[in-house]
């Protein structure tokens, strides 16, 4: 055991190094607590604008994945979902979509849903797996759109909370006219 024990001076240096880390963590966390909170609790930030009771009713009958709210998925789960035929939906506005979007995604902006919904329902079957994204954590559009689609009877609605920024930062393929 003696050979493993540290000298007092080294112990002091280690202790001071830990204090430095703790101080920096305290400063960083207090200055950026909102950002970190958003990143770690996307669901609570992305509070749906639609009442849960409205959303829950149609989904409850035969839903496997959809509960009251859309189900969040992570980036590493997307590959399996997409190769199994999930449909990627961009809920951001159409300008953002045209500039850049996840390769393979279709556009269904939350703000234009009322005019686009009928066409969408004609083209996309009710049991199609939908993966909706917007501009990352803190962006509520994907969640709100997911809730609307569940209320319209879609049964397998998932939310990719990392959204466009996570996908882009991970070096995944993009499409659109932007750089």
């Amino acid at each position: 055991m003696n050979s493993l024990s540290l000298s007092p001076s080294l112990r002091r240096i280690l202790f001071e190094a830990i204090i430095l880390c703790a101080l920096s963590a305290a400063v960083g966390l207090s200055l950026n607590f909102k950002l970190i909170f958003n990143a770690f609790s996307g669901k609570s930030v992305s509070t749906p604008v639609i009442a849960a009771s409205v959303v829950a009713e149609p989904a409850a009958e035969n839903s496997v994945t959809a509960d009251v709210f859309p189900v969040p998925v992570e980036l590493d789960e997307l590959d399996d979902l997409l190769s199994a035929g999930a449909l990627l939906i961009d809920s951001r506005n159409s300008v953002d979509y045209q500039t850049n979007h996840l390769a393979g995604a279709i556009s269904l902006p939350l703000g234009e849903l009322d005019q686009d919904l009928e066409n969408f329902k004609k083209e996309v079957s009710i049991d199609q797996t939908l993966v909706i994204y917007c501009s990352g954590y803190g962006c509520p559009d994907s969640f709100d759109l997911g809730a609307r689609l569940i209320s319209e009877g879609y049964t397998d609605v998932l939310i990719y909370e990392g959204g466009f920024p996570e996908w882009r930062d991970a070096g995944r393929p993009l499409a659109g006219g932007g750089k």
Binding site: L20, C21, L23, S24, A25, V27, G28, L29, L31, N32, L35, I36, A39, F40, E74, L75, Y137, G162, E166
Partner: peptide, 20 residues
Amino acid sequence: LPYSWNYLVASILPYLELLC
């Protein structure tokens, strides 16, 4: 790192470098 942890590390690391 998982996506959320990137934000956590990014929030602390600059201040650690700065302090040192």
